[in-house]
Design a protein around this nucleic acid. Sequence first.
RNA 1: GCCCCUGUAGUUCAACGGAUAGAACAGGAGACUUCUAAUCUCCCGAUAGAGGUUCGAUUCCUCUCGGGGGCACCA
Length: 563
Amino acid sequence: MIRDILKNAIKEAILNLSLETDDIHLEHPSDFAYGDYSTNIAMSLAKQTGRNTKDLAREIVNKILEKKIKEIEKVEIAGGGFINFYLSREFFTQNIKEILKSGEKWGSGNFLKNQKTIIEYTDPNPFKEFHIGHLMSNTIGESISRIIEFSGAEVKRANYQGDVGLHVAKAIWALQRSQHRGSTSVLTRSEVLGNAYAEGVLAYERDEKAKKEIKEINKKIYDKSDDKINLLYENGRKISLERFEEIYKKLETKFDYYFFESETGPLGKELAEKNTGKVFEKSDGAIIFRGKKVGLHTRVFVNSEGLPTYEAKDLALAKIKSERYDYEKSIVITASEQKEYYKVILEAMKQIYPELAKKTKHISHGMLRLPSGKMSSRSGVVITGESLINEVKTRILDKMKNSALADKESVAEQIAVGAIKYSILKQSAGKDIVFDFEKSLSFEGDSGPYLQYASARASSVLERARRQDIKSDIKKATTDTIELEKLLYRFPEIVKRASDEFEPHYITTYSTELAGAFNSFYAMEKIVEESEKAPYKIALTEAFKITIKNGLWLLGIKAPENM
RNA sequence: GCCCCUGUAGUUCAACGGAUAGAACAGGAGACUUCUAAUCUCCCGAUAGAGGUUCGAUUCCUCUCGGGGGCACCA
């Protein structure tokens, strides 16, 4: 990477001046007028050594220039002592060549080489709706998966689903009642399950008798002692899971492993019981972890009914995952409301499976909230993932009504999913998103369709070049370097950063900037023309298309050829 | 009450301790006989408040004021 070349040159220059530094800060100036890269090294060294900043900067620059690095056009000192690097025409041309050669691999790296990584995300619960919060987790998880995969890691995608627990009992309780009421279509639609869950929640909170019954059902689900319940349970579980699969398909996500709470439960309970007295303690009939001792919360792992809670199950999950796949790194992605919770899990894990705890990393994303407040499947205030996708798709189809595209349906769906994913991935992952349909989902400006449109446009230009039989060529590069070229070479380092920080939004921001640069280029220049400049402009277009397509792939967004 | 996160144009978001705080939407003015106008080109407009550290603070520290989340048998 060009960045490393510059860093090394700076490092060497500093060593030659008998100075030392371990941290070379190199950044892209916000304004192209300040060059392509900039370092503040002279300012920080001047402070340490008590020397004059500009003198020191001059000496460093001279040392660097002595090396005659072909990628560097000129080096200037500006501002309070910044050293600004301007890359050479030769560098930009060679970069286009490299992009065309690398194709799908352009931007990929090897810094996580073969690191065995298991990454858990989405985690919807059977018997509950797949709502837009799950959409958010899935979008972020899938993007992070692709980013680290692109950085060389071996990635296994995992989905952990709560198929047992009180929430299931609540839904089953309501289903039983509606059966009594004579409803026959109970289990044909998954919405029914969502409604049943909401009904069960309400009853659990307001009706002591119902609460007792639900707890009883919960036990029976665990020990499978009641045939009628077993039947309702199996059917409901199956319908939920099938429904989830349909959504994963639309979202272009595919899991390698599925884990269920029904399988983590027994081990979780066993672990809690086995370690009672050491890691856990008994309190009011429950087995708890005294997180308070280390500044965390105290949490229940096995309740007084003798059933494992989510805590114990999550602990067991780490172990079960490692048995299924011998990972070097385990990433768990959840909403930020589980942040404190997960700290407790990690603390307990540290004491029981220290080697697994070391490998585990919890990443939390913000919460998707509605303008009216927190979304909650408990109260039935939810927007399902599917209804959102369909709603957006309808609007896009309306926009496309005059289009002659053959595969309108599938393109519209790609655009709908792209728009939704973009709106989730455009901001840093930790922050909440207030989801307002009109404001959050845009088809213009900063948006998924903006990127897809730029990509489709490039495709159309390239198609025209093919028809006119004008081949791309980098030999006759234009003399002045345009913004598009000044952005293209940055792609690999953007990917690296996104990978290091598990932050897809760097890719989103960069891709948008890049698409903007291409759109300007497109507006200013006729690309396919009878001119000796055409081959290079076509090469640029091709390089752009490769980059935006790879960028979109990292976001989990498809790049349609036409739209 | 205790702990964690957060506060940037009217709105939704950027900014790896750096240079004139970037975009998009909304608002105003332009650009399609020319490769896709879901586009492009201008204009208008912001760091919650008060201290501190630093050559330099949206970024780090302290306090105040807003918003959110979590704190024992839900997940």
